[in-house]
Design a protein around this nucleic acid. Structure first.
Lengths: 75, 75
DNA sequence: TTTCATTTGTCCGTATGTATT
DNA sequence: AAATACATACGGACAAATGAA
């Protein structure tokens, strides 16, 4: 389910929901790296700002952790 | 001393005063980088627009200088 | 050891829409 | 009406660290 640019729901909230689903479903297992910001950007047709805000949401939820200059991983 | 959202004084003026105090007190030494915009945003509960306007005030006062695409530093 | 690509961190500039005062 | 402020979103650029070649 791609993001919907015409939806009233903010894009970063939509993207966070997509990634959250992939994590809770096990599609992204524990300690697995999230796709990189640039990948998520291109794949979802959104800006890097939006990607980073989506990841920030998951980080605040404790679902993922970020290693600077390395990547973000599923907790 | 945090900003006061109910004060009639504009938030960017309040934030500028806070940063000015940290500079003149020496808490932020010469050539030290100001905290990042996102940090100041979250730390003070204001928007990026407000942070940038506050920094602009200090720049106009000659208290800080900004290197394009690099950051803002204490003069 | 040096080089190179990748990735996150940070900054700059801009724009639209909404709410409050 | 105008100023202030926030939230969202886009694009581009450079820095710093990592890891692989």
């Amino acid at each position: 389910m791609p993001v919907d640019h015409r939806s009233p729901t903010p894009l970063y909230v939509q993207l966070a929901a997509i990634l959250r689903e992939q994590i809770t479903s096990g599609e992204l297992a524990s300690d697995a790296p999230l796709p990189s910001e640039s990948y998520l950007q291109q794949e979802n047709g959104v800006s890097r700002v939006t990607v980073r805000k989506a990841v920030e949401v998951l980080r605040n939820e404790g679902l993922v952790y970020t290693l600077p200059q390395r990547g973000t991983y599923v907790r």
